[in-house]
């Protein structure tokens, strides 16, 4: 049943011209960023104090990609359930022998499949450097794993906020708010190093993602993204179950 929802949602996403437009725009933008980073590195490598191309160009490239993911993930996920509530097609799902977790997981995997496809495409750009130079593949892999985990978190958060509202724009706005709060949580921490400060630091999505772009696959950061993903998935499942007791 999860695979039916996954296939159907993927079919809708990949048959939509706006999805391909998003892919093209992201690809164009990131290729431009990559070109700029590479030009800067090649023009004056001494500026980077002997750091390798993976450390300078590729890590910055994935940091830029993360910011773009923050912008596009809510746009992609906002319609997943909001649209169904608004159009009334949610009643098809609720009257069918499909459980709340199958609905949420099917839609979650569809959204992540699309974004992982996008991640694969944008990974081809730094990989092209391997033709002319040797890359630190371990570091590159850490960037890819970090980006994937970030995408899982963004999709599950977006999906949950989509289940809360019938208007897609409201879902997107609340989703942006939650994601940006998590991304910038470290900015609320002062330099005193108190427990509260440490809490803000450890809740920062940006801090955890930076670990990956520095080539470190840290178990705390991996757990952070998995917990965020699971938390929003559970909330989404709970919300679908609650729909049966609420007013339409």
């Amino acid at each position: 049943m999860i695979s039916s929802v996954l296939k159907f949602e993927c079919g809708r996403m990949f048959s939509s011209s706006s999805s391909w437009l998003v892919i093209a725009a992201v690809q164009f933008l990131l290729t431009l960023i990559f070109y700029n980073l590479l030009s800067k590195y090649l023009t004056d490598p001494a500026l980077f104090e002997g750091r390798g191309i993976t450390d300078v160009v590729i890590a910055s490239y994935y940091r830029s990609a993360a910011l773009i993911f923050l912008l596009i993930a809510p746009l992609l996920t906002m319609r997943l359930i909001s649209e169904e509530i608004n159009s009334g097609s949610i009643k098809l799902l609720l009257s069918s022998p499909i459980s709340a977790h199958q609905i949420i997981l099917g839609k979650f995997f569809a959204a992540t499949f699309f974004l992982i496809f996008l991640l694969t495409l944008i990974t081809l750009v730094p990989l092209s450097l391997s033709i002319g130079t040797s890359l630190d593949y371990g570091h590159l892999l850490a960037c890819i794993i970090g980006s994937s985990l970030l995408l899982f978190s963004l999709c599950s958060a977006g999906l949950f906020f989509s289940s809360l509202f019938s208007h897609q724009s409201v879902s997107a706005i609340t989703s942006y708010t939650a994601i940006l709060l998590l991304w910038t949580a470290h900015t609320a921490a002062s330099s005193e190093g108190s427990n509260v400060d440490r809490l803000f630091q450890s809740l920062s999505m940006s801090n955890h993602f930076t670990n990956f772009t520095e080539g470190v696959i840290n178990s705390a950061s991996v757990s952070f993204f998995i917990i965020i993903t699971l938390l929003f998935l559970i909330l989404g499942i709970w919300k679908i179950k609650m729909m049966r007791t609420m007013e339409w």
């Binding site: 809708r12 159009s87 009334g88 097609s89 009643k91």
Partner: peptide
């Protein structure tokens, strides 16, 4: 059971 709500539950882009 089969259910037809007051507004048909359609995905209009399909």
């Amino acid at each position: 059971l089969g259910y037809l709500p007051d507004k048909p539950p359609l995905y209009i882009d399909c």
